[in-house]
Amino acid sequence: MLHATPLGRWRSFLTIAAIAVAGCSDRSAAENLQAPAAAETAKGAPMAEQKCENDPTSRSLCMIRMILDHVAQDPDRAGGGISEIKAASSTSYEVALPKEGRIVHRTYSFEVKEGSIRMNAPTERVESF
């Protein structure tokens, strides 16, 4: 489980994760950035795929990298950044995206196959203030 508090620790982790994940994919960072938007499909359908090592840390890093790429390409990305990324299971993460008056809680789920990770279209719920 990753948590945003303290914020500095989280930022440091993301930096490390981004560097580490670059080495576990067979795709360039630029290709990864384009993947989510280009692969927008029906709800529940695979949106992006990456080759990853099979150990748990590599898988987690791949999933988080794909999540970050998706957020970077999100037309609704404006707001207060990412306040939380939390593993909901070994194949899903919940991401908190604070916006004006609300936090968008987005759940990313993945299909894990031998040597690759496929991301499904995320689902959202909103916490209003």
């Binding site: 914020l7 207060g80 306040s83 604070p98 936090i103 203030f129």
Partner: peptide, 10 residues
């Protein structure tokens, strides 16, 4: 904290 909430980001 965001939203004045105890769970919001400081």
């Amino acid at each position: 904290n965001d939203y004045g909430s105890s769970s919001g980001t400081p």
